[in-house]
Design a protein around this nucleic acid. Structure first.
Length: 427
RNA sequence: GGAGAGAUGGCCGAGAUGGCUGAAGGCGCUCGCCUGCUAAGCGAGUAGACGGCUAAUAACUGUCUCGAGGGUUCGAAUCCCUCUCUCUCCGCCA
């Protein structure tokens, strides 16, 4: 959520920055309602002031044995007026909130301008795509051939966009989760959290999924609760409505969770393999920090995510998303894209964002910079560290051998009971 | 699921019979004083949101907030209703 005061004071500037996200004219309705709100507020506060003073006066008169019935009648009428004005005010405020909750974050000035992902800019590359002396297969062929991924039975259980992991595949998924958590907690200073996978609607508003993106999520029937689309939601909302101590900042949090996404509007995209699923596993990184450090923290967070790919020996590149491709809550986002031989292309495996105070304002997460200072919103950051299913896919494709087997990256072998290679089952 | 108790400021905790309580007292914290150091002591200060007036994020000032929402009343932290959460006991259960 943007700061209403900022919009009011710098409407033209804010409008300009929103235009970079290809939005125009979104501020006008806000400004009109905002003015109306203050007009009503002044009136109703005057009436309340009268009521407060008069009520005290009535008390005193009664004590002195005087008859306050005239004044009581006047206050009663004031009460009627207050009721009407309050209702009007509530209506206007609700509309204002609706508008504000649907305006995305302002892009940081370093973000490239553009309409879509074509304007994203590559920042750096790591690793060389392997040269194959045979035609590399896609993971949706490798997995079933090794009998470790089963898309057909998954469809029987749950329909499209689900995967069953079997045997070494299931263990590989679990190994990666543990490996990522161990690296981030043991070497990058994050604290492991195991949060609920269902959260109340307030959390979804806090991180920006609601009210605008309701159709992207799974909602529980008859409850005001949702399956989390990412651990960013419970991790960031851990501190919703709280005032943090400066000595606790920055907070580095990580969690493994499954993620649930309706994938509405992506029909026909990535229908094969594990790339786009209704349920997938992810290790997420979240930071809460002081505003002046958030961009430095974004760089570090992105590097933390890159590091696990380096350890796995998976080539990748980092791109900075253009203003047209960024998420709703983000001010700046780096995507990490891993090399996928089956696609002969880089595919997103992590997205690292600085949301500045956008989520903190929605979720009301504040801190006091020093004992005398006013409360301030923290900055929130999040990034995948990284997506597990896509990591499995990348390993299968990058480590596949001519005989159809897949070599396990060395760092994962301790997590796989020493297994070095997944072989095809005997025919 | 059944029975009962509770929800007050950063924390703990007062707040019969509704009015001068935005909230006593304590702790914590900040600043100052004092003490040769430490400990103790003394004094002052210490919620937030949204407005008005302003050049001002200064001063002054108004409104709202005692779990949330609604009601009664001239007036509610205090009375009534609904909901949420916490605790205790019972039941059920991985």
């Amino acid at each position: 959520m943007l700061d209403a005061k900022l919009i009011r004071a710098n409407a033209a500037l804010v409008e300009q920055r929103l235009e970079k996200r290809n939005l125009t004219g979104v501020l006008k309705p806000f400004l009109l309602l905002d003015e109306e709100r203050r007009k009503i507020l002044v009136q109703v506060e005057e009436r309340k002031n009268f009521r407060n003073n008069s009520s005290q006066h009535i008390g005193k008169m009664k004590k002195q044995g005087l008859n306050p019935s005239d004044l009581m009648e006047e206050v009663r009428q004031a009460g009627q007026q207050i009721k009407v004005l309050d209702e009007e005010l509530a209506r206007v405020e609700k509309e204002i909130e609706k508008i504000l909750l649907n305006i995305p974050n302002l892009p940081h000035e370093s973000v490239p301008l553009g309409e879509d992902e074509k304007s994203n800019q590559e920042v750096r590359r790591w690793g060389e795509p392997r040269q194959f002396d045979f035609e590399p297969k896609a993971h949706w062929d490798i997995g079933p051939e090794l009998d470790i991924l089963d898309f057909e039975r998954a469809a029987k259980l749950s329909g499209a966009r689900f995967t069953v992991y079997k045997g070494a595949g299931a263990r590989l998924e679990r190994a990666i989760i543990n490996f990522f958590l161990d690296i981030h907690c043991g070497q990058h200073g994050y604290r492991e959290i195991l949060p609920p996978f269902m959260v109340v609607a307030d959390c979804m508003v806090g991180t920006g999924q609601l009210p605008k993106f309701a159709e992207d999520m799974f909602k529980l029937e008859g409850k005001d609760m949702y399956l989390i689309p990412t651990a960013e939601v419970p991790l960031t909302n851990l501190y919703r409505e709280e005032i943090l101590e400066i000595k606790d900042l920055p907070l580095y949090l990580t969690a493994y969770t499954p993620c649930f996404r309706a994938e509405a509007g992506s029909h026909g995209r990535d229908t094969r393999g594990v790339i786009r699923q209704h349920q997938f596993n992810k290790v997420e990184l979240v930071k809460l920090c002081e505003p002046q450090n958030s961009y430095e923290e974004l760089e570090k967070l992105t590097q933390d995510a890159e590091r696990v790919l380096q350890l796995l020996g998976l080539p990748y590149r980092v791109v900075v998303l253009s203003t047209g491709d960024m998420g709703f809550s983000s001010a700046k986002t780096y995507d990490i894209e891993v090399w996928m031989p089956g696609y002969q292309d880089y595919r997103e495996i992590s997205s690292c964002s600085n949301c500045e105070d956008f989520q903190a304002r929605r979720a009301n997460i504040r801190y006091r910079p020093d004992p005398k200072a006013k409360l301030q919103y923290v900055h929130t950051l999040n990034g995948s560290g990284v997506a597990i299913g896509r990591t499995v896919a990348a390993i299968l494709e990058n480590y596949q051998q001519a005989d159809g087997s897949v070599v396990i990256p060395e760092v994962l072998r301790p997590y796989m009971g020493g297994l070095e290679k997944i072989n095809r089952p005997e025919a």
